[in-house]
Design a binder for these strands. Structure first.
Lengths: 131, 131
DNA sequence: TGTCAATATGGACGCTGGTCGATGTCGATG
DNA sequence: CATCGACATCGACCAGCGTCCATATTGACA
């Protein structure tokens, strides 16, 4: 995380991610890398009031209630959901900007200026500096 | 996939993803859910000319060459990389729009208008229709 | 044609992660 | 206080994934 947007395009496209950045981001994307979790996120975000209780969700899936609870926990620990207990029910919502932060990282502003290079005919080895 | 952007915000926030859509998207995010793959993607995208050969990449990691090759294959099969052989070397690049497509899906246009709902005091059961 | 360098593939191994049933916790309600 | 419903936690099982080493494939070049 802690990527400073200052140039033409997203940090990921402008300069290599550090191992630490990659580790953190991979955690977020891993949380999105399950169809049940994606649908949960989408169901909650699109639900009335931008929130939904677990009882609104369990019936939409073919998996058990503990499994839903598990996926909600994964999303919450990834910062993609917040939960709040009201009476007997627990309401989940997508915190503002949680998804947008990842979107920003992936967006590659199409008109970005890139250095161009010719195809090499000699062995490039492990060149750390561009041609 | 095949999400038609027509309303206020991203498909994911506007309406629930179908199981099929979620399945496809989860595949893409799963490919991004590994720190080595994220760094590979970033290294390639930020490299001179927007492309890099495998020899530019292997030295940057503490994992073996076959492992790098494996991760490149995963990214390629997810549509996040294309490869082209030139002479002895294979050059990888990020196809235009590949990342932007995912970014679009996550972006939740902050000013989006949402229906509001009061906290419930009666049992919501599994309400498919909003209050 | 033989050799070498760059990259991919195959097989194996250990660990992570998605799933379940059983059970615990917490709040409401009588 | 007892009970019930909503949700979370626990422990177990098994498929899948990341990793490695060994080896195959491909193209350049002598």
């Amino acid at each position: 995380m802690e990527l400073t947007p200052l140039g033409c395009c997203s940090p990921m496209v402008r300069e290599p991610l550090t191992p630490d950045q990659a580790e953190g981001l991979a955690g977020s994307f891993k949380a999105l890398g399950d169809p049940v979790r994606l649908r949960l996120l989408s169901l909650i975000a699109s639900h009335a009031g931008g929130e939904a209780c677990v009882c609104d969700l369990t019936g939409e899936f073919d998996v058990s209630q503990p499994t839903i609870s598990h996926h909600l926990k994964v999303l919450r620990e990834a910062g993609l959901l917040t939960s709040e207990r009201r009476a007997s029910w627990v309401y989940y919502r997508v915190p503002a900007g949680a998804l947008a932060a990842l979107a920003l990282l992936l967006d590659e502003t199409p008109g970005a200026v890139r250095r161009t290079s010719l195809s090499r005919t000699t062995n490039p080895r492990r060149s750390r500096s561009p041609i």
